[in-house]
Design a protein around this nucleic acid. Structure first.
Lengths: 272, 272
DNA sequence: GAGTGGTCTAGACCACTAT
DNA sequence: TAGTGGTCTAGACCACTCC
């Protein structure tokens, strides 16, 4: 363990939270108690909690204490269909970077190989838990600066032979169509902004206070079969997302800005 | 000034950066030098720099120092058209929250009124700098928790009479169509994830390490005139963006995943 | 050797609230 | 009054790089 004391405390709490021992709404130990328990100074215990806060796992309230956050309670923005977002840019990472005059590079963090899926990913790919899938775990750079961390999974029955076959520079999905006649037609994505975890900070070479944008993506074929599940971490400070869209007829949808905002007019919080 | 010493140091540097006295790439004073200059401890100077880092204004490198970031250099993700994103959810903030069983509330931080636009917003709205615009500055809550901070501007020649007219619960844009025959049809948005500024933290009641999602939005009418420019700040931990989309034909675009990734396979950074 | 950011310590005072 | 998080101090040692 070479992650430092704050990270150690954070990891202990993180494990409890993820495993459900500390469930949503639970009050966790105070900074002073944690510092005693782990033999650290209060500032270090404090940093540990701040790390978890940045990851969205806990919420702190002065006077009241620190509480485990309810991750499922995040509001879901935009349930609609959009034309293309992360996937489009994913596909053109090379081109995008070259267009910007930056040298892209990819580093595999693990040799691509078959692994047994855990429960979560199995559900996303509609497989039985334990089924073999092809896992790719890689880091993309531009001008030797880490940009994105990508962990992706593909059903082994379709993609297994990629371990022994070189498809050259062809697209994985183009290959899928040629080899198996399956065309990739649909994707769903989830986007969350948070601070990076220790591992992500290490790999992306960013510091404690650097936010990341985390994507979860599932890709389907025309036969309605999920063929990719990916978890993508991008360094937030390196990205700006821009997009445009046409607006449906507001006379029908008519809800925009109708928020009964004349309700109150109050002075701003006094700041100076 | 009641913002604390770290914030004071951060503000001094922030001003220099925004005004261009410290331009992109410049190395700023070290933590130790700043602490001397401002009569603070090193930890306080350090926190000041961390604040700026989280906002994306500077980048820190161990050994080398801290440098002013090039904001314009963020990669632009997805230049394409999408169907609806923030605007759709904006429009239904009330409904969305009610659907989730939360009580929405809106607080105006300023009385809506006419102001002279600065250069930036003038450009967005295609107006002469100094032209009058209607400004609305408000904070949206759900269950008394601050969710979003919205600062929006509208050309005064179209919207001025809203100051003396009550449009009830109707949409601003529905009113625009009825009153002026202008239909809102198009929008462009920019999305950035970063840590909150001191003011945003105060208003949104979040702490130092809490990331936000910042949107800039411009809305156009069918006559191709910009009628709204808005700056929206959302508490990142309260949001999850989900969307789906159909994928264009990869045989034609064929760049997806073609990233020549077999280039290298390296061991991950050793972590334990 | 000097200077950088990264981490940590062992205190301190504050505003606030629940008891 | 006791306990919470928020802020601050004045040190310390570390790994690392540049000179």
């Amino acid at each position: 363990m070479e992650l430092g004391k704050a990270e150690e405390i954070a990891e202990a709490l993180r494990t409890q939270i993820i495993q459900g021992e500390l469930y949503a709404g639970t009050k966790i130990a105070s900074e002073r108690d944690l510092s005693k328990e782990f033999g650290a100074s209060r500032m270090t215990a404090r940093r540990a909690i701040q790390i978890l806060e940045g990851e969205g796992l806990v919420t702190r309230y002065p006077v009241r204490g620190t509480f485990v956050a309810n991750i499922r309670e995040r509001s879901v923005i935009n349930q609609g269909r959009v034309a293309a977002m992360e996937l489009r840019s994913t596909g053109s990472f090379l081109e995008q970077m070259e267009r910007l005059g930056r040298k892209p590079r990819v580093q595999f963090l693990e040799q691509p190989g078959l692994v047994a899926v855990d429960v979560d990913i199995a559900r996303q790919l509609q497989l039985q838990p334990g089924t073999l899938v092809l896992k790719r775990y890689r880091l993309q750079f531009a001008n030797n600066t880490p940009y994105r961390l990508i962990e992706s999974y593909y059903p082994a029955d379709l993609f297994e032979e990629l371990l022994t076959t070189d498809i050259g520079s062809r697209s994985l999905f183009a290959w899928l169509q040629e080899r198996h006649g399956l065309r990739v037609v649909h994707a769903q994505e989830e986007l969350i902004a948070r601070l990076a975890t220790a591992r992500e900070r290490q790999l992306l070479r960013i510091s404690l206070n650097a936010p990341v944008v985390a994507f979860n993506r599932t890709v389907w074929t025309d036969t309605n079969r999920p063929v990719e599940w990916a978890h993508i971490i991008e360094v937030a400070s390196l990205y700006r997302f821009t997009y445009e869209y046409d607006i449906p007829d507001w006379n029908q949808e008519s809800q925009l800005e109708k928020e009964a905002e004349r309700e109150q007019v109050t002075q701003p919080v006094d700041t100076e």
